[in-house]
Amino acid sequence: MNSTDKKRSLQFRDVFSVGGATGPLIGLLLLCAFLSFATDSFFSIRNFLNILDQITVLGVMAVGMTFVILIAGIDLSVGSVLALSMMVLGYLNVEASMPMGIAISGALVASALVGLVAGLLITEFKVPPFIATLAMMSIARGLANMITDGSQIIGFPAWFNMGAIIRYGGFLTSTVAVMLIVFITTLLYQRYREGGRALYAVGGNPEVARLAGIKVKRVTVLTYTACAALSGLAGILLAARLDAVQPSSGVAYELDAIAAVVIGGTSLSGGTGGVGGTIIGVLIIGVLRNGLNLLSVSPFLQAVIIGLVIVLAVAAETFKHREQ
């Protein structure tokens, strides 16, 4: 009785442990402590909720990117897929006046297809992930622009934007709730499902994974599909937040997503890290941007500081590994 209790609580701790991301977590806490002293407006519930609002899109996108990087891949197309998803959503809902449910499903399917094609290019045609997703980045951006010939779409139903503004119970907007659900589901999946464990095996050594009976090609294709679908979901959240869609959205978001994953301690060579660390990475970027704005740091200096933080985070990880 006593021992099962202990075991259960241990498992619970496992799920939410930041596994390998203690460095980033300490960094995040130091950053928050510094900003709380340096500004009057940082340490408040309202600002904390603002930060959650501000990281929704990056957060959802970075989760998908984590899986791809875990299997030692990379996905450069996420920003373009986000734009494609937004434009499909806008086209179906506003131009074709379909109900939002169908429009959202359509947007997700369109996004997932891009990931599926990228995955097949990588597994069946042996195109390196960098090149395959670079190609999909260009194709998805072009398609997004073609839907309206480059112009924006507005005129979503009022509740759609309200979902990103109204805080239910004074706390959660629908968009933040979606992000939290994505976080929790993927954390559980990564730790407890066979498929989640397979990602580490494939990233660690695909040949060994194959010999151990893991269908490596299948896992790879599904991972890119899931990553693209999550980018599509991020696009829907962004559309809700902006109450408008435009094909030029999400340019260079792939770099933000990769930065968040790397700051969170996931290795670009695959096999180590996870969603827990990425969530911290996303929070570091979100808190940093918010804090620098609150400190009225000049926009040019902000870019320098964010670059320095990425360097620091990666350097800290490297030193840690060297000591081990």
Binding site: N50, D53, Q54, V57, L238, R241, L242, A244, Q246, S248, S249, V251, R289, N290, N293, L294
Partner: peptide, 12 residues
């Protein structure tokens, strides 16, 4: 040039 960034900045 990013609309989403701007919304976040206005909140700040």
């Amino acid at each position: 040039n990013d609309t989403a960034t701007q919304v976040s900045q206005v909140q700040d």
